[in-house]
Simulated assay, not measured.
Amino acid sequence: MTTFGWCMPIEHAEELQKYGYDYIECAVAPLLTLDDVAFKKALPLYVNSAIPVKAWNVLFPGDIKVVGPEVNEEIVRKYLARAVETMVQAGSSIFVFGSGRSRSIPEGWERARAEEQILSLLNIIAGELKGTNLVLAIEPLNTKESNIITSVSEGVYFAKQINDPAIRVLADFYHMDEESEPLDTIVANKDWLSHIHVADTGRLAPGTGQYPYESFVAQLKAAGYNGMVSAECTLNDRDKELPASLEFMKSQWAAQGVK
């Protein structure tokens, strides 16, 4: 069954619950970069959230590089182990690997070496996820935010090489629109999709712009996708747009007969 959430700080969980959202998607890096005292104080907010923290984004802080000459595998492994432990404690299902600042290829660094580093990272993550119910969703970003993994098909290219059920791909309506990526790539890569991000024109709230939602949802239906859908965008009038966007999304999905 399709469920709807919003990418927001944990402090807004009760607000989302009030408006009828199913879950909240939070950024993991800001939590993990707190000092120990602040982390221990903050963690219960996620574990005991008013609505479940089913998904996470912003996996790596910008100063932890996963591509290029500054990669420190020991630091990456320790960070990931702590991230997975934290997300398991929160009872989460999905976490997103976007992290454009961490994964972008530095000038002068060979793309082939960058691809090897990303595959190495994904293998490390797959190992960390053994015995958990967590799935990683590789997020294709637009070319203003990253110079590698900029389409759903490219995300699937990396996931296929790992070939592990815990490594899947996200389709983000905003990034797809920015790159003029054909919507039928959703069906073409349906077996690899595990999460969806949405927005609308100007990366604003769903229902406030001209994105072709009817076509987008039709592709999701054709792909058999009925998982989580998170809005990731800027709000101009949260008290109006949060409930209106949920109503809009539910109506778009219902119109296509997607439950």
Rank of each mutant, 00 (worst) to 15 (best):
248 F>A: 02
65 K>G: 07
199 A>L: 09
198 V>W: 00
192 W>Q: 07
161 Q>W: 07
128 E>Y: 01
258 V>G: 08
73 E>T: 10
116 E>Q: 12
208 T>M: 08
14 E>N: 15
247 E>A: 15
160 K>V: 09
64 I>D: 01
205 A>S: 12
16 L>E: 09
248 F>H: 04
93 S>G: 11
82 R>W: 06
244 A>H: 09
232 E>L: 00
69 P>E: 01
70 E>Q: 14
50 A>C: 07
166 A>E: 10
72 N>G: 10
177 D>Y: 10
137 A>N: 04
255 A>V: 06
19 Y>C: 10
250 K>D: 08
46 Y>N: 05
182 P>R: 07
227 G>T: 02
154 E>N: 05
84 V>H: 07
168 R>I: 00
111 R>F: 02
161 Q>F: 04
186 I>T: 00
231 A>W: 08
162 I>W: 13
62 G>Y: 12
249 M>E: 01
104 S>E: 06
252 Q>R: 13
60 F>H: 03
122 L>I: 05
160 K>N: 11
60 F>V: 02
183 L>P: 00
89 Q>M: 13
219 Q>K: 14
131 G>H: 01
14 E>W: 15
142 N>E: 01
8 M>W: 12
168 R>H: 00
105 I>S: 02
247 E>P: 12
87 M>K: 03
133 N>S: 14
251 S>L: 06
59 L>R: 09
100 G>D: 04
152 V>D: 00
174 Y>R: 06
170 L>P: 02
97 F>R: 09
32 L>F: 12
110 E>D: 10
159 A>L: 01
29 A>C: 11
92 S>T: 06
224 G>N: 11
173 F>Y: 11
86 T>S: 00
35 D>R: 12
186 I>P: 02
129 L>F: 04
214 E>N: 13
169 V>P: 06
233 C>V: 05
161 Q>S: 10
255 A>R: 13
64 I>Y: 08
2 T>N: 14
247 E>S: 15
208 T>G: 11
146 S>M: 02
71 V>P: 01
83 A>Y: 03
29 A>Q: 09
96 V>W: 05
118 I>Q: 01
138 I>M: 00
91 G>W: 02
148 I>L: 08
182 P>T: 00
181 E>S: 07
196 I>V: 15
104 S>N: 09
108 G>A: 06
184 D>N: 14
57 N>D: 11
158 F>K: 02
139 E>Q: 07
217 V>G: 02
75 I>L: 13
133 N>F: 14
26 C>L: 08
6 W>I: 06
4 F>G: 04
108 G>C: 01
110 E>A: 11
209 G>S: 01
109 W>Q: 04
